[in-house]
Amino acid sequence: MRRVKPVTVDDAVACCPPLTSPDLSEANAEKMAAMFKALSDPIRLRLFSRVASHPEGEVCVCDIADVGVSQPTVSHHLRKLRESGLLVSERRGTWVFYRVPPEVMVAMSHMFA
């Protein structure tokens, strides 16, 4: 079992300042909009939640694919989550493992701080 480093505030990427900070840059607004757009789909939100809440910090696609849609549809939604930067993946043999980069959760929490 691979150990995941605990997330600290120092791990946060400077990409996404809190919404209460003045003057959100165009680049940051684009990045945040892409993240929210990806999470606006209920299937994507469920998949993201399953990955983010997994106790081992990462999960095989085979363990999260039962969300009521076909496997190609699950792959499509996971690709959208990867493209938005919310998930990263690693292929191991025939399976793909997904995880949420620690800086994503920290940045998202700071947006609403």
Rank of each mutant, 00 (worst) to 15 (best):
residue 89 S to E: 12
residue 97 F to A: 05
residue 24 L to K: 08
residue 29 A to Y: 04
residue 87 L to G: 01
residue 21 S to F: 09
residue 102 P to E: 07
residue 58 E to V: 07
residue 76 H to D: 03
residue 100 V to G: 08
residue 106 V to Y: 05
residue 70 S to N: 06
residue 33 A to V: 00
residue 71 Q to A: 12
residue 27 A to V: 12
residue 65 A to Q: 15
residue 104 V to K: 02
residue 111 M to N: 02
residue 39 L to W: 00
residue 78 L to M: 15
residue 9 V to W: 10
residue 32 M to G: 06
residue 100 V to W: 04
residue 68 G to I: 13
residue 66 D to E: 15
residue 43 I to V: 15
residue 1 M to I: 12
residue 36 F to R: 02
residue 80 K to M: 11
residue 69 V to G: 04
residue 11 D to T: 08
residue 53 S to M: 11
residue 85 G to R: 00
residue 78 L to W: 11
residue 49 S to M: 10
residue 109 S to H: 10
residue 99 R to T: 04
residue 25 S to G: 10
residue 69 V to L: 10
residue 5 K to A: 13
residue 87 L to Y: 03
residue 22 P to M: 08
residue 88 V to L: 08
residue 34 A to N: 10
residue 101 P to T: 06
residue 87 L to H: 02
residue 25 S to C: 03
residue 13 V to M: 13
residue 99 R to E: 09
residue 49 S to R: 09
residue 104 V to H: 03
residue 15 C to I: 15
residue 33 A to I: 00
residue 86 L to F: 01
residue 109 S to M: 12
residue 51 V to L: 01
residue 37 K to Q: 03
residue 81 L to T: 00
residue 34 A to T: 05
residue 94 T to F: 08
residue 100 V to M: 14
residue 60 C to A: 15
residue 74 V to S: 09
residue 82 R to M: 08
residue 62 C to Y: 10
residue 19 L to F: 10
residue 106 V to W: 04
residue 49 S to P: 03
residue 52 A to S: 09
residue 93 G to W: 05
residue 6 P to R: 12
residue 39 L to T: 00
residue 98 Y to L: 12
residue 27 A to S: 14
residue 42 P to C: 02
residue 37 K to I: 00
